[in-house]
Lab assay of single mutants.
Amino acid sequence: MAAGGDHGSPDSYRSPLASRYASPEMCFVFSDRYKFRTWRQLWLWLAEAEQTLGLPITDEQIQEMKSNLENIDFKMAAEEEKRLRHDVMAHVHTFGHCCPKAAGIIHLGATSCYVGDNTDLIILRNALDLLLPKLARVISRLADFAKERASLPTLGFTHFQPAQLTTVGKRCCLWIQDLCMDLQNLKRVRDDLRFRGVKGTTGTQASFLQLFEGDDHKVEQLDKMVTEKAGFKRAFIITGQTYTRKVDIEVLSVLASLGASVHKICTDIRLLANLKEMEEPFEKQQIGSSAMPYKRNPMRSERCCSLARHLMTLVMDPLQTASVQWFERTLDDSANRRICLAEAFLTADTILNTLQNISEGLVVYPKVIERRIRQELPFMATENIIMAMVKAGGSRQDCHEKIRVLSQQAASVVKQEGGDNDLIERIQVDAYFSPIHSQLDHLLDPSSFTGRASQQVQRFLEEEVYPLLKPYESVMKVKAELCL
Rank of each mutant, 00 (worst) to 15 (best):
A2I: 11
A2D: 11
G4N: 15
G4T: 15
G5C: 09
P10Y: 15
D11S: 06
S15F: 14
Y21T: 00
Y21K: 01
A22M: 13
S23R: 11
M26C: 08
F30W: 11
S31F: 00
K35F: 05
F36V: 15
R37E: 09
T38M: 06
L42A: 04
L44V: 11
Q51K: 08
Q51R: 08
G54V: 00
L55N: 07
I57D: 00
I57N: 03
I62W: 05
Q63K: 10
S67G: 09
E70F: 14
I72K: 03
D73C: 13
F74E: 13
E81N: 00
L84Y: 09
R85D: 00
R85L: 10
H86T: 01
H86C: 00
V88N: 06
H93F: 10
T94V: 15
T94N: 11
G96V: 13
G96W: 01
H97N: 13
C98I: 12
A102C: 12
A103G: 11
G104I: 10
I105R: 13
I106F: 08
H107S: 01
A110C: 08
A110W: 00
C113H: 00
Y114D: 05
V115M: 08
V115E: 06
D120K: 06
R125D: 05
L128F: 07
D129P: 00
L132P: 11
I139T: 10
R141W: 13
A143P: 00
D144R: 15
A146D: 00
R149H: 09
P153A: 10
T154S: 10
G156D: 01
F157E: 01
T158F: 01
F160I: 05
Q164I: 10
T166L: 09
T167K: 02
V168A: 06
K170I: 00
C172E: 03
C173P: 00
C180D: 04
M181P: 07
M181C: 11
D182N: 02
D182T: 01
N185E: 09
R190V: 11
D192R: 10
L193E: 08
R194G: 13
R194Q: 08
T201I: 02
T201R: 00
T201Y: 00
A206E: 05
F208S: 04
F208W: 05
L209Y: 11
L211V: 14
F212K: 04
E213A: 12
G214W: 10
D215H: 10
D216L: 07
E220T: 10
D223G: 07
M225I: 08
M225F: 11
V226A: 04
T227K: 10
F232M: 09
K233F: 11
A235H: 10
I237E: 08
I237K: 09
T239C: 09
Q241S: 02
T242R: 00
T242M: 07
T242W: 05
Y243N: 08
T244G: 11
E250A: 10
L252P: 03
L252S: 12
L255V: 10
S257N: 08
A260G: 11
H263R: 03
I265R: 02
T267C: 08
I269E: 00
R270Y: 03
L271F: 05
L271D: 02
A273G: 13
K276V: 05
K276E: 05
M278K: 01
M278H: 03
P281L: 08
F282S: 11
E283M: 14
Q286K: 03
G288Y: 02
G288N: 02
M292T: 02
M292S: 04
M292G: 01
P293S: 07
P293Q: 00
P293H: 03
P293G: 08
R296T: 11
M299T: 09
R300S: 14
S301Y: 03
S301L: 15
C305T: 11
S306L: 01
L307R: 02
R309V: 12
M312Q: 08
T313Q: 09
T313N: 07
L314A: 10
M316R: 04
P318N: 01
Q320C: 09
A322I: 14
Q325C: 14
F327N: 06
F327L: 09
R329Y: 01
T330S: 09
D333H: 04
A335N: 02
A335V: 08
N336Y: 02
R338V: 01
R338M: 03
L341M: 11
E343S: 10
A344T: 05
F345S: 10
T347W: 04
T347S: 12
T347A: 15
T350W: 04
T354A: 15
L355R: 01
N357G: 13
I358A: 15
E360K: 02
E360V: 09
V363R: 06
Y365L: 07
I369D: 04
E370Y: 11
R371G: 04
R372C: 03
F379D: 03
F379W: 06
I385D: 03
M387P: 01
M389W: 02
M389I: 07
G394Q: 06
R396L: 05
H400V: 06
R404W: 12
R404I: 03
V405G: 12
L406A: 11
V413P: 03
Q416P: 02
G418C: 04
G418L: 03
G419H: 11
D420R: 03
N421T: 07
D422R: 07
D422P: 11
L423H: 05
I424S: 13
R426V: 04
D430M: 08
F433V: 04
I436S: 04
H437N: 07
S438K: 14
L440V: 12
D441L: 11
H442Y: 11
L443Y: 05
L443V: 09
L444C: 02
D445M: 13
P446W: 02
S447Y: 15
T450A: 07
R452Q: 08
Q455G: 10
Q456P: 02
Q456V: 05
Q458C: 11
R459Y: 09
F460I: 04
F460E: 04
E464L: 05
E464D: 15
Y466F: 13
K470A: 13
K470Y: 15
P471I: 15
E473G: 14
M476Q: 15
M476L: 14
K479I: 14
E481G: 15
L482D: 10
L484Q: 15
L484S: 15
